[in-house]
Simulated assay, not measured.
Amino acid sequence: MSRTALSIDVLVFYSPVEATEGVLAAVFAAGAGAIGDYTECAWFTEGTGQFRPGVGASPAIGSVGELERVPEHRVEVTFRRGLRREVVAALRAAHPYEEPAFHVIETADVEVG
């Protein structure tokens, strides 16, 4: 039986609660959230995001110079490493914030098969 290495990344992003479903739909359409025979897999929890838009910012929520606190979801989805560019582009295109907060975690390759 031959084994192959599966290269998986994890995308973690923060989204205003009311926008999470739309952002998830976009990253799913780009290929994120597939685990074996399952699709649209994600984990999220609610918390509070904080930011202060600086001079030159065009905030979707809040005002320049004012501290803002917003109910947000922290969302985690996995995806095949080869889809990184497409998944991040989908996140940025669908996210309502001018500068969405996110990070990509490169995980160790896992043998499958």
Results as ranks from 00 to 15, higher is better:
Arg3Glu: 15
Thr4Pro: 03
Thr4Gln: 13
Ala5Thr: 14
Ala5Ile: 11
Ala5Lys: 12
Ala5Ser: 13
Leu6Arg: 11
Leu6Phe: 04
Ser7Pro: 02
Ser7Cys: 09
Ile8Asn: 08
Ile8Gly: 02
Asp9Gly: 04
Asp9Leu: 07
Asp9Ile: 01
Val10His: 08
Val10Leu: 14
Val10Asn: 08
Leu11Gly: 03
Val12Thr: 14
Val12Glu: 11
Val12Cys: 08
Val12Tyr: 04
Val12Leu: 11
Phe13Ile: 04
Phe13His: 10
Phe13Val: 03
Phe13Leu: 09
Phe13Gln: 02
Tyr14Asn: 01
Tyr14Ser: 02
Tyr14Arg: 02
Ser15Pro: 04
Pro16Met: 06
Pro16Cys: 08
Pro16Gln: 08
Val17Gly: 00
Val17Phe: 00
Glu18Arg: 08
Glu18Ala: 13
Thr20His: 00
Thr20Ile: 02
Thr20Lys: 02
Glu21Gln: 12
Glu21Gly: 07
Gly22Asp: 14
Gly22Lys: 13
Gly22Arg: 12
Gly22Ser: 15
Gly22Glu: 12
Val23Gln: 03
Val23Trp: 02
Val23His: 03
Val23Ile: 10
Leu24Met: 14
Leu24Asn: 08
Ala25Ile: 11
Ala25Pro: 06
Ala25Cys: 11
Ala26Leu: 08
Ala26Ile: 09
Val27Lys: 01
Val27Trp: 01
Val27Gln: 04
Phe28Arg: 05
Ala29Asp: 10
Ala29Tyr: 07
Ala29Trp: 06
Ala30Pro: 02
Ala30Gln: 01
Ala30Asp: 04
Gly31Trp: 01
Gly31His: 02
Ala32Arg: 01
Ala32Leu: 05
Gly33Met: 08
Ala34Gln: 15
Ala34Ser: 15
Ile35Met: 15
Ile35Thr: 15
Gly36Trp: 12
Gly36Glu: 13
Tyr38Asn: 11
Thr39Lys: 13
Thr39Asp: 15
Glu40Ser: 14
Glu40Gln: 15
Glu40Gly: 07
Cys41Pro: 06
Cys41Ala: 13
Cys41Asn: 07
Ala42Lys: 08
Trp43Ala: 15
Phe44Thr: 10
Thr45Phe: 07
Thr45Tyr: 06
Thr45Ser: 13
Thr45Met: 10
Thr45His: 09
Thr45Asp: 10
Glu46Thr: 00
Glu46Tyr: 00
Glu46Gln: 03
Glu46Ser: 01
Glu46Lys: 00
Gly47Thr: 03
Gly47Ile: 00
Thr48Ser: 00
Gln50Val: 11
Gln50Asn: 07
